[in-house]
Amino acid sequence: MSSGLGDEVDKKLIVVLRDGRKFIGIMRTFDQFANIVLQDTIERIYVGDCYSDKNLGLFFIRGDNVVILGEIDPDKEVQEKKLKKVSWEEITKAAALEKIKKEEEEQLKRRVMTESGLTIDSILNIDDF
């Protein structure tokens, strides 16, 4: 397969999942479904200009859930230092608030669109992905 992940083995990757979560770790192995094994994994949450990490260890990630695998470039990683590191408690609180706000906006949109009869997404009840 021409688009295999062979070049990324033993490299530090950020994995973005369909639910929006981000994991960073060293990819040790993969298969044709984009199932991957990540070593020394951390979960990172970003809210605005802030972020926080949590150590999680060894992970197997099922390919279905993957949106993007990004190779972390050491030169570009420096730029990320401009973000402010905060505590895990702080970031999870901020993330929860952000989620509520997004859900409210989404609900408002669905209500207005459904009332106007312009959408069928709400009837189909489908995910974003």
């Binding site: 408002l108 207005v112 669109m113 312009l118």
Partner: peptide
């Protein structure tokens, strides 16, 4: 199609 709040009337518009 996006839903926005009208600044003056405070009504949601598409």
């Amino acid at each position: 199609k996006v839903v926005e709040k009208d600044e003056e009337t405070d009504e949601e518009i598409i």
